[in-house]
């Protein structure tokens, strides 16, 4: 699989994502936000960080980067697109995923390991999970998922909610931690699976997510 990790100015989990993908022997390349072509890649990763300083709103400015047209084309082509943390925020701002990530219910950044539930184990991103309860790291100040009731209802109905917090650390509507689009090829999630792939760092619950993506 050829993967692109998009580097926006202010991305800071880009190298972590590269490290994780290489751990899974994925042919991964860093791609600048100024590029306009992603046709060579099978999967696109939008990493965490503070793109453009997260000024105005997180992800709001990144979505106007030249690369985002190519990301939209990749979506139209049905390629897998994964937005982690800031990447999730960018995908919602860009309209590739519904809803919005807002400031945590209790203002302030939180970095912690949080128990969550794999609510849909049948997606391209979660199908290798055998247990429904996992623990993943979170690290964000604006991770409160918000959408109006109609959107939440349709997410539920279409089984688009992939991960839910067991302890709702940020006040997300419906405990939502990660969702896909309706087609099921775009995933956005606030937790950081790329931080949970090595035993030496104390958590390997992110591995199944990468294995699911690789498992064609």
């Amino acid at each position: 699989m050829k993967a692109a990790v998009i580097q926006f100015p202010g991305s800071n989990c880009d190298m972590d994502m590269m490290h994780a993908l290489k751990d899974f022997k994925v042919d991964a390349t860093l791609v600048s936000h100024n590029e306009t072509d992603l046709s060579d890649y099978d999967a696109i990763f939008l990493p965490g960080g503070f793109s453009f300083g997260d000024y105005l709103r997180s992800g709001a400015i990144a979505r106007f980067s030249p690369i985002m047209e190519a990301v939209k084309q990749a979506d139209e082509a049905g390629k897998r697109i994964v937005g982690i943390c800031n990447g999730f925020q960018i995908l919602t701002e860009a309209g590739l995923l519904p809803g919005q990530l807002m400031q945590n219910e209790h203002p302030g950044f939180i970095c912690d390991e949080v128990k969550m539930e794999v609510t849909n184990p049948d997606t391209k991103f979660s199908r290798d999970y055998q247990t429904s309860e996992i623990t993943l790291p979170v690290a964000h100040g604006e991770g409160r998922y918000y959408a109006d009731q109609a959107t939440i209802d349709s997410l539920e109905k279409n089984h688009q909610i992939v991960f839910k917090y067991q302890t709702n650390v940020n006040g997300s509507t419906d405990d939502i931690a990660g969702i896909t689009n309706q087609k099921g090829n775009v995933l956005g999630m606030m937790p950081h699976p790329e931080r949970a792939i090595e035993a030496i760092l104390g958590n390997t619950d992110g591995r199944k997510l990468f294995e699911s993506i690789l498992d064609n």
């Binding site: 800071n12 989990c13 190298m15 972590d16 490290h19 994780a20 965490g48 302030g108 950044f109 939180i110 970095c111 912690d112 790291p137 690290a139 950081h192 790329e194 931080r195 090595e198 030496i200 760092l201 104390g202």
Partner: peptide, 13 residues
């Protein structure tokens, strides 16, 4: 300390 990202760069043992 929970307010600080202690894990970014994925090296914190």
């Amino acid at each position: 300390f929970r307010h600080f990202d202690s894990m970014v760069r994925t090296n914190t043992v």
